[in-house]
Design a protein around this nucleic acid. Sequence first.
DNA 1: CCTACCAGTTACAATACCGTCACACCTTGT
DNA 2: ACAAGGTGTGACGGTATTGTAACTGGTAGG
Lengths: 228, 228
Amino acid sequence: MPTILIVDDEEDIRELISMNLLREEKYEIIEAGDGLEGLHFAKKKRPDLIILDLMLPEMDGLTVYQRIREDARTQEIPVIMLTARGRLEEKLEGLELGADDYLPKPFSPKELILRVRNLLRRTNPNVGSSVIESGPFSLDKNALKLLLEGEEIELTATEFKLLLSLIESPGVTQERGELLKKVWGYSDLIQTRTLDTHIKRLREKLGDQGTSIETVRGVGYRFVKTSD
Amino acid sequence: MPTILIVDDEEDIRELISMNLLREEKYEIIEAGDGLEGLHFAKKKRPDLIILDLMLPEMDGLTVYQRIREDARTQEIPVIMLTARGRLEEKLEGLELGADDYLPKPFSPKELILRVRNLLRRTNPNVGSSVIESGPFSLDKNALKLLLEGEEIELTATEFKLLLSLIESPGVTQERGELLKKVWGYSDLIQTRTLDTHIKRLREKLGDQGTSIETVRGVGYRFVKTSD
DNA sequence: CCTACCAGTTACAATACCGTCACACCTTGT
DNA sequence: ACAAGGTGTGACGGTATTGTAACTGGTAGG
């Protein structure tokens, strides 16, 4: 469950954000009322995202931001900046420093939620990305696994690389030499039946969907998207 | 060099964006005047970022966006949406669909540049491009290989998953149980020395940089970014 | 219908990979 | 300084994985 830290000295704003975030998705929310407290939570809890108001008591928001970026423990965390004063120069200053997003108050809660969601999807490797989907296939580049019709299918390293090569360009016929280069690293055109054997093994593991790998006689193989 | 695709039917706007982008950073710019052309370039050139105006001839901007997200070749590419009409509902619709950013016209060119830069910084190094970089390490999720100091280091599937788990959260200590779950799929806390052995094998392969994997006694392991 | 060629399939041997164990070493608290 | 507990290390056997070879089956052109 993603953790989000809200740093703002206005309690009702914190409430507004928190309420809206919790209504839509499953997040864990941490609230801080001033800069020092915010920085402390950031380092201790390492949230997945920080929403930072620039008008803060104790420590200026931009200073808090810089401290977050300086520390190895927190420097990768995306930050959305908020400000009461929607002046362009301030916005540019925040973005210049590397803020991932910048919203002037008053903002639409719905917009904030959507920006939070999109930023987390883009940032958090486990959520959303690094999975290639094509038809009923979900190829997980992190776990080196294939999800097909609800089942987890274990692939060996070679099978994974071969299927990835095919699935990456659906509908495109890949020549034997191309595949041998991509998967096995063979640079010159080698006469081998290895490719055929691995294609067979893949087709077996894919079961019903084994037909997704089509043979193009005299050329190579092709991955086709099934309607399902 | 990052490639950026601009899809907008107003040539002067394309020029404005292009000029400003080129002045600040080293980018390769591709311009498209209508939706079909934009989609064609997106699939053919696979840019690192797409700036997409919603008002387009031939094909509606939101339709273009959806086509981009449907195709395995383009679905990871971040998109910044532009619109002449800064209406909130439209903005929300764009963000709802997963647009990474949304700017109403007229916008400050400076702001656009900064948002492009920040989005690329957030997007490029890790998620999306299938190469995770951290310090001198380049971990290729497609080839299952590690590039370190110019050398290609072959990793076994287990080693790859272990290093990936560590490198994904630099500086964060990962508990033994956590790693055993992520890499081996063990759900319950198992007493095993397997993890230790694989850590050793990884450190051996990393050579000088083997120290990048730190032991946190009683807890687990941690990947640290070296300065180089 | 026949031939040449390409792909599918099966079997098998070599090996890369993996998990466990035993022991040495180091860290930490008393 | 000692004991206890966690970690590093090297060796070893079982096993999954891999590439090759040989055979079978299918397709296209004449």
